[in-house]
């Protein structure tokens, strides 16, 4: 198939970017979206032009590195997958495809389609863990956990930290990302001990880094490649309120 690509090119964070048109020919419908970009880049290199920079690694939908805004949607038109799992059979011959980076203030562009998502690491560092050291822990089966709770925790823990939720949100809110981690620990006995501090610290860090507020449009859930539910946001809000309340009483 032959396609017209409109790709965001930006040399560095400080410089202005723009959409540039590229034509690609003879793309197999069995190729993945990123393989299509590989074909373009290989040609650009041969022609002595600067290839398009984009983040990617595992190419099987789990590392969370890939991050393209395709035709106005994070990770493209399909539901429940990442950009690297998107295949060209999803597009029509002759189609024009617009490819942009994540757009959110806390995710500044590094080059072309690469953005800096280190803000997510900072939020995890603010409390996305159980404060135990290596060794000296009880036997694994000494902490029985109802299957339902373990499954809920796993649903939340499936987050790959790609940032599509932020990119999809008109407010650039990180609530889905933060709530997934808060929720995972909130339903597990291991996480309960530090639950109050965790939710407050992570929310404070999220606000400090410039992520917006949640206005319940649910765009995040709709675009999340792991289909993480907004019910985790509701749980985080409850956790947050009760934590604030208790700390005020104390």
């Amino acid at each position: 198939m032959d396609l017209t690509l409109k790709i965001w090119r930006q040399a560095s964070a400080g410089e202005k970017g723009k959409l540039v048109d590229y034509q690609v020919q003879n793309i197999s419908s069995e190729a993945s979206f990123l393989e299509m970009l590989d074909v373009l880049n290989e040609r650009l290199v041969r022609e002595g032009e600067d290839p398009v920079a984009f983040d990617h690694d595992c190419r099987e939908g789990i590392c969370g590195a890939c991050s393209l805004y395709i035709n106005g949607r994070p990770h493209g038109p399909d539901k429940g997958i990442t950009t690297c799992q998107l295949h060209m059979r999803r597009f029509k011959d002759g189609e024009t495809i617009v490819i942009e980076p994540w757009r959110a203030k806390p995710f500044p562009v590094i080059k072309d389609l690469m953005v800096d998502r280190s803000a997510f690491d900072e939020i995890i560092q603010a409390g996305g863990y159980v404060s135990i050291n290596t060794g000296g822990v009880p036997d694994a089966n000494a902490i029985p956990i109802p299957k339902r709770d373990a499954d809920t925790a796993m649903d939340a823990a499936a987050c790959i930290g790609c940032g599509a939720c932020v990119a999809a949100c008109k407010n650039a809110s990180a609530m889905l990302f933060v709530s997934a981690k808060v929720s995972q620990f909130a339903v597990l006995p291991q996480g309960k001990i530090e639950a109050r501090e965790r939710v407050q610290n992570m929310v404070a860090k999220m606000d400090e880094l410039g992520f917006g507020n949640c206005t319940n449009t649910y765009a995040c859930e709709a675009e999340c490649p792991k289909e993480i539910s907004v019910s985790h946001i509701a749980r985080m809000n409850r956790e947050y309120l009760s934590a604030k309340l208790v700390s005020q009483i104390e």
Binding site: T134, G135, V137, P138, K147, A153
Partner: peptide
């Protein structure tokens, strides 16, 4: 065996049986 204990203590959501055990 220590690894499994460690990971569970960290909150790794391993698959469980209905009785709550791994």
């Amino acid at each position: 065996n220590n690894i499994i204990d460690q990971c569970v203590a960290q909150g790794v959501p391993f698959a469980r049986e209905y009785g709550g055990l791994l």
